[in-house]
Amino acid sequence: MITVSVYRYDPETDEHPYMQDFEFDAVGKDFMVLDVLEKLKIEDPSLVFRRSCREGVCGSDGMNISGKNGLACITPLSEAVRNNKIVIRPLPGLPVIRDLVIDMKQFYAQYEKIEPYMVNDSPAPQTERLQSQEERARLDGLYECILCACCSTACPSFWWNPEKFIGPSGLLQAYRFLADSRDTAAKERLSKLDDPFSVFRCHGIMNCVQVCPKGLNPTRAIGHIRNMLIRGAT
């Protein structure tokens, strides 16, 4: 038997959030945390969380599992249970809508700011815009981001200034387009990032790298953006 302690909050009925403890029998199996939540939801249908793909692809079930942000669907109990207990909370730093569901508006607003689409003013060729293998390889470690927000909500700089600091996820995506050989708007992109907050609030704490369920490295991407800004300024 393990104790599953879950953050509960329904703004319509609860004055304050509280932790609810469930007992769960894993029958010797190493379930994923999402499976456990699904089973608990049968027991208590009022429990609310987001999920879709249940295989680490859609990015909807980011949550704080025993103190570390991650995707419930690919986090096994063996990684998260300590002293027979697992504590599940919503991702920190963004407003809670209900239980484990957070309001991601601010996160998407930052994503929108970096203009996450290809900009190329030259006339479109007959077929597609081609890249060499090396040019394509530069996008590895960048395009895989599933926008789960685990990184940005683990980042103290994003907690303190979510309106001004783009956050690790948005910056990783910003670099994804800066690094793309087919994109011609690097200069404009960089000039929009050159204020004291958007990029430079990153203090290299690397919480983002530690939690990214896809094994990506936003800190490195941020370093590349900073170098591009510096090269442009000097």
Partner: peptide
């Protein structure tokens, strides 16, 4: 200057 890059460099 209002540029974050220059503040960082400085």
């Amino acid at each position: 200057s209002r540029s974050g890059t220059s503040k960082w460099l400085l």
